[in-house]
Write a protein that binds this DNA or RNA. Sequence first.
DNA 1: CATCTGATG
DNA 2: CATCAGATG
Lengths: 322, 322
Amino acid sequence: MAILRLGGQRLLLGVLRIASPRVLSSPFTMPPKRKQEKAEETPAKESKKVKTDEFSSDAKTSDGKKWNLKIVSWNVDGLRAWIKKDGMSIFEKEEPDVVCLQETKCSDDKLPEEIKNMKGYKSYFMSAKKDGYSGVALISKKEPLLVTYGLDDETHDDEGRCITAEYEDFYLVTAYVPNAGRKLVTLDKRMDWDPKFRKYLKELDAKKPVIMCGDLNVAHKEIDLAKPKGNKKNAGFTPEERAGFTDLLAEGFVDSFRHLYPDKTAQYTFWTYMANCRAKNVGWRLDYFVLSERLVPNLCDNLIRSSLYGSDHCPITLLVHL
Amino acid sequence: MAILRLGGQRLLLGVLRIASPRVLSSPFTMPPKRKQEKAEETPAKESKKVKTDEFSSDAKTSDGKKWNLKIVSWNVDGLRAWIKKDGMSIFEKEEPDVVCLQETKCSDDKLPEEIKNMKGYKSYFMSAKKDGYSGVALISKKEPLLVTYGLDDETHDDEGRCITAEYEDFYLVTAYVPNAGRKLVTLDKRMDWDPKFRKYLKELDAKKPVIMCGDLNVAHKEIDLAKPKGNKKNAGFTPEERAGFTDLLAEGFVDSFRHLYPDKTAQYTFWTYMANCRAKNVGWRLDYFVLSERLVPNLCDNLIRSSLYGSDHCPITLLVHL
DNA sequence: CATCTGATG
DNA sequence: CATCAGATG
């Protein structure tokens, strides 16, 4: 069993509330200036532009049913900095049913009010013990039947890496998978995580279908990063990490993006801030929606929102019919 | 004897060079935006405005001689950040003969080229052993006869707090005096410094008149800070620190600003960044020019440039006839 | 080249 | 509320 935090908003039963999201701020679709020259005089926070068509979609399942559930996943690389960079405009643009965030880097007591109490949403956070490190969040229109935190594992559950929301018809799991680190100093921790997480997902999958999303800190195949040759010994593209992902799929899960677009190249969700990599699209696909195989008939689309800035990752969006 | 660093530009003999300072950048006389909203799109660094009259002065000695030497002192609170905030435009505005900087917070290997090799100036730096801490600089049009570093004292000379430049007719000393710290945790270090520094200045004074400037980290009298009542137990206004300054003056030195303006109130050189203190002029006079008494006939003016931004201190300017 | 913390002021 | 360093990514 996963850890179950009680009290406050953390034990959650049944009542489903639906409301339209708060209008937050203007689109943020231009790459921001570098740090030395950043931040215009008046950030465009005041203008209340209407949602553009850029984020609308008519995607359907293979048997023609239009999507009715939208989930966004975004590694924010620091929740507070991301908010200052207008990251929360994602709610206005996507009008998502659920938003999952990774690398919040924010202890509970420092969480900004605006993200804790979003109109029309319920928010759940799992912060690391270590301040300013890791941390995930799950923000849902519908109140889940139950929200649980972690994998029930001593090694990993102090690091704020996983939240599970149970809904009527499925589990939603968001994860920030351990980074193997420079010179692979934490590859051991990562390789400890992979089978435990796989087991955890398999146990959920035995009960209800699973939608898992987040920063899995691996580019699965050569097609999933710009420079496969040079990165075979680097965190995120070692044989061990790649095999870990292959093993997960072998248990009855699907990489929804690659399922839909098996040959699509140069589709990344992360670019290091260094060396102007994002402008050059020298990136990695590290962020995924992984679904129980039996959800494939429900899958409508998996979009990579590479036009959105606010972190060194971009958001990804899942559309399903459920 | 003070420590004498040899090698490179640090042992300095005789040759006097005078050149006009490089035109650096536009005036920077408006309070900058707060951090969250700072830095215009295009910093005004390109425009080459002419020096305004704001910084010109006809100040004379009491017997009518116009000033011919201008020295600026500024606690920059991080040399590199100060440069980014256009602090170096002080050279264009004041056309000073010497600029003394405190709290450079920059090890020698990280010093920006532009400050090391200013056209028309010679630069001298004393950095602390501890990275990003303390540090002073002295930048002079005329090459001094000799430049020495520190007080020849083990306790203090690792902390980059003092540079002495010997000229034909006087010594120029710049100092960043130890801060007594929150809850006075380093008051002991400070009270160790005061008599040693006093002794050092007295020894110089026995040879040539002394001009000492810098952040002395004390507001001498109640008139020298906005909130004297509430600060009697705080760093910078304890009885011990104030007595240290009184003791220095008793050895034959003069606080040039207070000498010229004995009753002028609300004249400060430092405002904490917190609580919007600068806008409210809730400040402290911590930066001084202290002169050998026999230089009083040479004194023309001591100006507090509170319109200049770039750090939590403003620059002060000394005009003398020598 | 970013985020964060923690020391320092 | 700033600077900086160092850890982390």
